[in-house]
Design a protein around this nucleic acid. Sequence first.
RNA 1: GGGGCGGUAGCUCAAUCGGUAGAGCAUUGCCCUUUUAAGGCAAGGGUUCUGGGUUCGAGUCCCAGCCGCCUCACCA
Length: 510
Amino acid sequence: MSLDQEIYRQRRQKLEQLRELGEAPYPHRFERSHALAAIVEQYGAKDAAALEQEKVRVKIAGRVLTLRPHGKAGFAHLQQDDTRLQVYIRQDAVGEHDFAIWKLLDLGDWAGVEGWLFRTRTGELTIHAEKLRLLAKACLPLPEKWHGLQDVERRYRQRYLDLIVNPESRRVFRLRDGVVRSLRAAFHERGYLEVETPMMQPLAGGAAARPFTTHHHALDLTLYLRIAPELYLKRLVVGGYERVFEINRNFRNEGISTRHNPEFTMLEFYEAGSDYRALMEWSEQLLARVAREAAGGEKLQFQGRELNFGAWRRLSLRQAVCEYWPAAAGAAPRLEELADAAAVRRYLDAYNRIAAPGERYSPIDAAQQPSPGEQIVALFEAVAGDELFEPTIIYDFPLAVSPLAKSKDDEPDWVERFEIYAGGLEIANGYSELNDPEEQARRFRLQAEGEAARVDEDYIHALAYGMPPTAGEGIGIDRLVMLLAGAVSIRDVILFPLLRPEGVEREDQE
RNA sequence: GGGGCGGUAGCUCAAUCGGUAGAGCAUUGCCCUUUUAAGGCAAGGGUUCUGGGUUCGAGUCCCAGCCGCCUCACCA
């Protein structure tokens, strides 16, 4: 018998002993007078004399995280949410019956305690117990109290254990709640309507990513999990909701990495009457606000460096290519050269001469990036993307990679689009929305050329009813939380990241 | 999918050149009425991820597989 099984057996046995004491092993309810946090907040500052005089009575519940028995007395720490509070129990105060329950307690059990507040000799706020109940037994042992749970795989697979013993994990998900809360407040204050659009779509549009496929039996219909909510949200703008936002999951059937989880949370929003310039302004304010409200300030530590959401840089995509051009690849391009296809190709070749797989600069396959626009974007991502640590807005993108964005008035091959980078992560993407149905149809057809992709005719149809000038943006919530929480992996900010299941036969062996 | 690294007691980690698999916490028993990584005495606990191979002998070396981490590729 393994130790785990042995402990399980022993602890079930203790439940039997509890029954013999006349106690229900899993009582139905236990009313509390205070949350532990409320006790610390209200009485944490009172000294021993004041507590002695008031003799505050409390009834609380928590998970037993430490046990220090001392013969006919003992101490325990109970944890509830993010708060730990000490309990002092002695046989002459609780009586033999409740003291027998105390002796049956194990680390991890849920206990209910009634008593009064005092301070110990060492000054710690403590509940002097008068009644004790077992509320739920931990039949399996918790990870070690001092080191916590270190094994990253188990932290993800058994997140509940991680949350019990690693306060840092609880901090991250509380911060995540704060981020979403702050964002919602900001959008509602700005007159936005929160909506929910389909996650199961007959056509997966709004981004260029491989979708997950599923099937509806009654309709005998192939459906796709959405890769973006964009085309539905803009239908709502056509419908007359001038400001809409959605915070929800997108699903992309692609590789997994420290920055990519197959399902991730995206905030997308659209406002009529705006253009990309207005959204750049608002985005800077919005992210600074979220940093203040959810992370305690605009200045944060990320990867050992200061990240300041109050200090923004802005440069065009073409400027970024010139500015971050690696010296080893020769003279950096001049801005005006990037208007010339042959020049762009020369710089791409110059770049590839210093690039090597696995190195800082990895090669760019020109065949996969046939147009000058795609080549410039590939160069940008290769030379600048990872370098953009300070919060930076990169604006003006090639039309070739932006089928849903409106062209610039003075440069038809470029669009009014921007991306936001921080900590080396791409966290947002926004643009002035293309609202000419014929131009949109032309771009869809261009995009679908040679591919099996179908065109979302209903979206074109919707635009034909007239969408006012509109700007829209998407912000990756997981990555934003990473920055604000100082997390190095996206899996540290997602409660249950996707892992390969253990001990399950794989379905499609290749 | 490619490359690199890792998987040892319930947890956190050791194990020298290939030579009897250990420690702390946890667990069990006894003592202990202000401790806090409580303490004291004693005890139990191992398919070293899985399967092969080399060897007198494998946690250690070799091969294959599983799972994870990092990285590259993929990724508007």
